[in-house]
Design a protein around this nucleic acid. Structure first.
Lengths: 117, 117
DNA sequence: TTGACATATACCCATATAGGTATATATTGC
DNA sequence: GCAATATATACCTATATGGGTATATGTCAA
């Protein structure tokens, strides 16, 4: 009936700019809630709520350290977003079609050589 | 306040799965509303409303042909989504870090002569 | 213990939604 | 003119939201 919950999937979770901002801040490395409050200028409860949403869709993880909770990005949750939108990439950037070849190269090199990453 | 309107940007617009489905159908080429109604199983007003949202964020265009309106994708509107999410790609796929080099190569090749920074 | 600190949750409220149904606005053909 | 087709819009309703404020929970320090 209404819009899907923000916790329905990563698409809905990252539609909120504040949550993208939080993810961007966490991309550098783990941070306590405290720090996110300062950096975003949001209220502490608001940050906690945004983190809850991000946690529920698996985009962040929390690690307890004393009375702090250190949050970090778990980017695999964002992969469906990337996978979906990247199918449209060739429509705005023809040159990227050539990346298919490059990716094939990398893939074959990975399988053929057998060198572990 | 409340959540941002779906028409606020592409992030909010494509958070709705039905709208992604519509975009996916249009990715093959332009289609009249009629056809989208059949293929999605949604009601005609619902499809028109989803198309309105997609139009407002610039993700689709309409071309008039008699009493039909042929819709097509304008993928440039999806680029901010791609640009944002692709910054997280290296976090789930290490191998892609090597694409930075490849992209640099393509960019320099595109600019032709060496315009050093 | 007391108090300060760090984080999560409960509650309130205005708002935009998505689907449903009915209707308005073309456009074509007779 | 009228009817049929194609699409858009108006209206209704239940629902989840995000910010605000107050409070609960948990942890450290003296």
């Amino acid at each position: 009936m209404s819009r899907l919950p923000t916790t329905a999937d990563a698409f809905n979770a990252v539609a909120e700019p504040r949550r993208r901002e939080i993810l961007d801040l966490l991309a550098d490395g783990e941070r306590p809630v405290n720090e996110l409050v300062e950096l975003t200028g949001l209220g502490q409860p608001q940050v906690s709520k945004h983190l809850r949403v991000l946690r529920e869709v698996g985009a962040v993880q929390a690690r307890e350290e004393g009375r702090r909770r250190l949050y970090s990005v778990d980017a695999t949750a964002l992969r469906p977003v990337f996978d979906w939108v990247s199918r449209y990439q060739h429509l705005w950037e023809e040159r990227f079609e050539r990346l298919d070849d490059v990716l094939e190269e990398l893939k074959q090199e990975d399988q053929g050589d057998g060198d572990d990453d």
